[in-house]
Design a protein around this nucleic acid. Structure first.
Lengths: 221, 221, 221, 221
DNA sequence: CATGAATGAGTATTCATTCAT
DNA sequence: TATGAATGAATACTCATTCAT
């Protein structure tokens, strides 16, 4: 239960490491429990119990239940960023990057349904206290995609649309897809979903010239 | 619940209409307060206060806070059905019906943002107690649209796709749009949104022949 | 449901009769429900429902839940008096009267276990508000028995004991018997119990001369 | 509930004694208040106030008002066992043991009238939820007395009666005595009561030979 | 008389947070 | 640093009672 392994020699700032190490131990369990019981119904004691530590220890690392929850959401969204970045790395073609990003997005929430729950919980509980973390995440990461879309429109590979609206609408479709899919709890396969989504998106956005390449953009990988 | 008949004495007759009348008085206020404070943070006392009645009276008409909340959601979704039905009534062309329905959907939640809140709250609070009301609503109402989509595919006006997947993906897009739009609290105009959505949807679904009519399907009314 | 039969001609004070008639309809049901659910957990509405009348009607005949309950206890104790008086009527021998009275006492509570419940409930709920009804009943009815006991002591048929203490101890034994027997809910037979009790009582109270007649006093009837 | 051991950190060690120590502080006050106000009318807050602690602390040691109450009853009955055992210790003669036990029983409830209240309250409130604690207590402790009574019958010191019935009837007499005595709130002296009771019991149970020793068994000590 | 809609006081329990050890 | 005992604010729901019809 205590993987306080990799202790290096003295002289190292042990405390700082220990702190983030503990956080990394706490957040996954917190995510799991918040997702399964909901924010309001989650007892911090239960999280401590599952970790085999005392409730006070949780409060050492997170100043409040709210902060703990928000840290869990943050961690979830950071994971999404990582997954998307990894998926597009090394892909030179921008359109294929978009396709890969969309697939990575859906795959991530397929593998981490708890994060969907956290997003919904956050919205429900902190309605007026806080801008949704997923929107913050979007704002932080959307810039490069705007560039991509603008280029694609300019170069004639995309129809001449407004890039803000395009990314917005695609975001809506994507979040709508994960929300309704996991709300439905039908465990629908990620693969078929992402192909449907890509099909709708690209058939709608591609220029006639690029439409000829549709199959290529839709191929799974 | 109402064996009003075989009573003997005179006494005040049980007013059958009074009940539904009171419910209609209570639900809008309940909707408003649940939406603005969230389910958990709403005190039934506050609803009663706003109505100028006693808390016990609320409990006279709704057996529990939960039932009151769910009745409010139900009422919200019933309103959506009504709005959609009204919007397509008298429109003979099926594709135009689809366009009208999509616009009515977005318009409804534009006019009733509280209902979006209720849907999110419901999902957050009653995760495992209840199938989301909006899914029940979808299941009750989706049948005719499946027929429409099938016909349109058969007649060649739509590309030959699976009607279940089409309606599912459009649903995802629509719910995603209302969720993210109102989550963002940016009060984005309904009109631009619906045009974007219709644009994406029809550019993706229409056959080449029908694409020529795209502008007609996108026109506001 | 309305046995408003025996209406006589006008000019008779109908109301008074109707009132006591209604009370007689209400009290048995009230007794049953109070006994089965306890005073605190009994909802007056439930009593009204079982009677097929409105709650307000119950309040027409009894000013409060407490008065209703106490009336039910009273009715139970009045029934006990009646049963005991009936059992001794026509029995000339005083000792046999005592035996009959003890048997009648036990038999009554055997047939009316609800009354035992009411006595306990009364004691638990109205501890300091009211002298227990069964004690009032005892005080009202004990006088003649004191005379009997005194006579029996004087005449040498009973050992020379104090009649107050004798009746007190026998009362204790009797109430203790019904309390513990019905508390135990073992449905023990009344007959064996009353024989045991009489055996103890008379073996303890009878003079040597009367002990020869013990079997006669213990015989069932 | 207490895996105090395999904890890692230093921190305040869980004080095992503290728990039972606190319980011992809480139960007497709880007993007093439950007895004086009745179970239903007792507010846990009041118990906490009397103890000078927070309501939450009471719930720290007892999971519910019901458990707290039942613990108080249990403690009361445990006290009875202790008192009876202490009273018979060192007394070799079985009949004198019986006399001492009966006196100890009456003396205990004379000194602890609150426990009588608790027994009645328990019966009234938890009628169908729980076997009365005093019956459980009786079942746990009656066995040795059955042996004593059987021996006394065999050896001819008692009349040849059934030991189960004898102990049952004596129990009825004893519980009836404490119930009615304290119900009456007349503060009758314990001594005269126990002598009356013993008088009735032994005059009924003793063989003719032992009856000669009656005075010896009735002497106070 | 009978009814039943309306009232609102009353209460057990939970749990985030603190802080002495 | 880790602990867990102590705190006390916060809240849904019940039901005796009233009274307009």
């Amino acid at each position: 239960m205590t993987n306080t392994l990799n202790r290096r020699g003295p002289g190292r700032p042990r405390n700082l490491e220990l702190a983030s190490q503990r956080c990394e131990e706490i957040l996954p369990i917190a995510t799991e429990i918040f997702a399964s019981k909901g924010y309001a119904s989650t007892d911090v004691q239960e999280i401590a119990d599952r970790l085999g530590i005392a409730k006070g220890t949780v409060y050492h690392y997170f100043p409040s239940k709210e902060q703990l929850f928000l840290a869990a959401v943050d961690r979830g969204m950071a994971g999404l960023s990582g997954a998307i970045n990894a998926s597009v790395a090394g892909e030179p073609d921008t359109i294929k990057q978009i396709a890969r990003a969309i697939r990575a997005f859906l795959k991530y929430f397929d593998s981490n349904p708890d994060v969907v729950e956290l997003i919904v919980q956050e919205r429900a509980e902190f309605r007026d206290r806080k801008k949704p973390t997923y929107l913050e995440h979007r704002e932080r990461n959307i810039r490069p995609w705007h560039e991509h879309f603008r280029s694609l429109c300019k170069s004639g590979r995309f129809r001449p649309l407004n890039e803000e609206q395009m990314t917005q609408t695609i975001s809506n479709l994507l979040y709508g897809t994960i929300f309704t899919t996991y709300f439905a709890r039908e465990g629908q396969a990620f693969e078929s979903l992402s192909t449907q989504v890509l099909s709708l998106v690209f058939a709608g956005l591609l220029s006639d010239a690029e439409l000829a390449n549709l199959d290529k953009y839709l191929e799974f990988d």
